[in-house]
Computed example of a mutant assay.
Amino acid sequence: IASAGGIQGRDVSGRGVQTNLLKLMEETEVNLHSQTDILGQMQAVMEMQRGGRPRPRTINTRHILFIVSGAFDKLADQVRKRITSGQIGFAHSGQTLDDDAEVLSHVETADIVKYGFEPEFVGRLPVRVACHPLKPADLREILLTSEGSVLNQYREDFAGYGIDFELTDDAVDRIAEDAYKEGTGARGLLTVLERLFRDFKFELPSTAIRSFKITRATIDDPRSEVKALLKANSQAQRDVLAAEVADFAKRFQREHGFELQFTDDAIEALVDESLERDKTIRALCEAKFNDFHHGLKLVSRHTGSSTFTIDRRVILDPEGELSRWVVESFKGGETPSSDTPRGDRDAADSDNAPHA
């Protein structure tokens, strides 16, 4: 609502806003709803319908504390210029003029009025305090002890996936130092932590990793640390993906009534494809076996079987293998299986083929 005068002059809306606030900052009765407020108009109509006059809804501002805060950009430069030009002795008193907070502690009413505030508005703010910027030690304390700490929010996010992490003291110090360099106060902590945890959030939830440690080296290069963590837990990751294959088989049986028995080589093929294409096991299986149950119904109708073996060949060519199963079931053969080598199947088909 205030700004220093420049080429374009003061903000034209600033004076009007300050004037409207003057009455609020004194002891007065203030209407809770304006005449143009839809809610206030509806309440007034309802009270009139009940046979009475609408009662004004007001609040007294006598016991309300008004706090006005802001960044006050360039105000420190304005005060510094006044001090250095008008008080030579101050410059020789050993006090530094580099710290904006120290300079702002010498602000006067004339400085604030010149900055863009109305004298009447400034007069209603008798207490003025210049806040010092947060130091790394302050940011460290905020990170570890503040209520609603952003660090605890990240802990809760990871805990939702069953993952926990530990920060070393060096890592906490480094986070505070980097946040201080951001120059945005405590908000710098969120910037640093988001940069740190971004890759962990995207990579770890779908893995078997349940804990990890954050060190100073992790903060320097989080992406490399994530890759090293994934490599060290590659076998555990494969075990998790293999378990997802079993989960899909159970879900398929529950939804369609057919039991799919995946062989070890079929599971290995699915895991390899999942890692290579960066897709989940569920997404791969749903794509490969999307309409599989329709063909299995035909096979089951002719063979009476509800259990089918899924080997590597089915994973590589699900439609082709299912078509072969359907054809064999119409021939009155046994329950189709992919265990028979393709060469033997071709030879058997040749022997049974009609001859001229």
Rank of each mutant, 00 (worst) to 15 (best):
S306T: 15
R342H: 13
H294G: 03
V314H: 00
E328S: 14
T307Y: 04
R301K: 13
H293M: 01
G320Y: 04
K297P: 00
G343F: 14
H302I: 00
S323H: 14
W325L: 05
F308C: 07
F292K: 04
D311Q: 02
H293R: 03
R342S: 11
R313K: 07
S300M: 04
S300Q: 06
H294V: 15
L296W: 04
W325V: 00
V314M: 09
E319M: 07
L296P: 01
S338H: 12
G343V: 10
G343A: 13
L322R: 05
D344G: 01
T309K: 14
E319S: 13
S305F: 07
L316Y: 11
D311C: 06
S329K: 09
G304M: 02
S305M: 06
T340D: 04
R312F: 12
D317I: 01
R345L: 12
D346Y: 14
P318G: 12
G304K: 07
R313T: 14
R324P: 02
G295T: 00
G304T: 06
V299S: 08
D339N: 04
S329T: 08
R345P: 06
R342Y: 09
S305P: 00
V327Y: 10
D344Q: 14
I310C: 01
P318E: 04
G295M: 00
E321A: 14
R301Q: 07
L322E: 08
F292P: 08
S337Y: 09
P336A: 10
H293P: 01
L296V: 11
I315L: 07
W325N: 02
G320W: 01
W325I: 01
D311V: 10
R324L: 08
V314P: 02
G295Q: 01
H294A: 09
D346L: 15
S306A: 06
T307P: 07
R313Q: 06
I310D: 00
E321N: 13
E334I: 03
F308L: 06
P336S: 13
D344F: 15
P341G: 12
D344W: 15
D344K: 15
V314Q: 00
S323Q: 13
V299N: 03
S300I: 03
S329L: 07
D339P: 00
H302S: 04
P341M: 13
S329E: 02
H302C: 01
K331F: 09
I310F: 03
D311I: 09
G304P: 04
T309F: 05
P318S: 14
D311K: 05
G295E: 01
R324E: 14
S337I: 08
L296S: 04
P318Y: 02
V314R: 00
L316A: 13
P318V: 12
R342P: 00
S300H: 11
P336K: 10
P341H: 15
S300Y: 07
I310M: 04
E328L: 08
S338Y: 13
G332F: 12
R324H: 09
R345M: 12
G304C: 05
D339F: 14
L316F: 10
V299T: 03
G320M: 00
R312V: 13
I310Y: 02
S305E: 08
G333S: 10
F292V: 00
